[in-house]
C-alpha cells in the first residue's frame, strides 16, 4: 500500500498502518535528517521525533496538496534544519566541522545507502547546475544554512543567492523529469 493511503488510515488511529508507513518512510526520513544533522545520535533523535509527529498529526495531511512522501520529507527537513541551527548556534557544529575537515560532503551519507536510485539521478542533475546554483541550493538544503549565511560563505549579494536558488531548483525540476 502507498504512503498516501496509509497516512489516511494512520489519521484514524490505525497502529498497523503506522507500522507499514514506518517501513516506507523511515529510511528517507532518517537519511535526510542524517544528511543535514550529521551527528548520528542527534539524527536518530530528530528522526524519531519526526516519525512520532507523523503519528500525532496525520490528520493534518491533505492529499489534495501533494504526496504523503513530500509532506513527510518537508516536515523532516524543517525539523532537521531547526536542530542543526540551534546546535550551530551553540558552537558544537563548528567544532565538529573543524575536526572533520570542511563543508558540504555530498558522499558522506550516500556511501551508507543501499538503494542508489534517486541518488544517482539527483547527482546527475546537480552536476548540470552552474557551480553557484549548486552551492546555493546544497548549502541551504543539505547543510541547513540560511540564505544570508549562504551569501556570506559564497561572498555573493543576497539577491544573487536568492536568484541562484530559484534557478537551481527550476533547473533541477527540468532535469528530474518535470518537463517531458
Amino acid at each position: 500500500m502507498e504512503a498516501d493511503e496509509l497516512l489516511v488510515q494512520v489519521a484514524g488511529g490505525d497502529q498497523k498502518a503506522f507500522e507499514d508507513l514506518y517501513g516506507l518512510v523511515s529510511g528517507p526520513v532518517y537519511g535526510l535528517v542524517r544528511r543535514v544533522v550529521r551527528d548520528p545520535a542527534q539524527s536518530e533523535e530528530v528522526a524519531q521525533e519526526v516519525l512520532l509527529e507523523l503519528w500525532r498529526s496525520a490528520a493534518r495531511f491533505d492529499p489534495g496538496r501533494g504526496s504523503a512522501l513530500s509532506w513527510v520529507l518537508t516536515l523532516a527537513h524543517r525539523r532537521a534544519v531547526d536542530r542543526v541551527r540551534s546546535a550551530r548556534a551553540a558552537g558544537e557544529r563548528e567544532q565538529r566541522e573543524a575536526r572533520r575537515g570542511h563543508g558540504p560532503a555530498f558522499d558522506q551519507v550516500a556511501e551508507e545507502v543501499e538503494a542508489g536510485l534517486e541518488r544517482e539521478w539527483v547527482r546527475r542533475c546537480l552536476d548540470r547546475l552552474t557551480a553557484l546554483q549548486r552551492q546555493s541550493v546544497t548549502l541551504a538544503y543539505y547543510d541547513g544554512y540560511t540564505y544570508r549565511e549562504v551569501a556570506e560563505r559564497l561572498s555573493l549579494p543576497l539577491g544573487t543567492v536568492k536568484t541562484r536558488m530559484r534557478d537551481g531548483l527550476t533547473r533541477l525540476r527540468d532535469c528530474l523529469g518535470g518537463a517531458a
Binding site: Y22, L32, Q48, L52, A115, E118, L172
Partner: peptide, 26 residues
Amino acid sequence: EDAVRLAWSTAAPAPAAMRDRVLAAV
C-alpha cells in the same frame, strides 16, 4: 516539490532500535 527531490536521494536505512522505540511510543 523540487526541494523534496533533493531529500529522496539521501535515504538511508534507519537504525533498527529506532523502530522499536517509535512503535512503542506510538
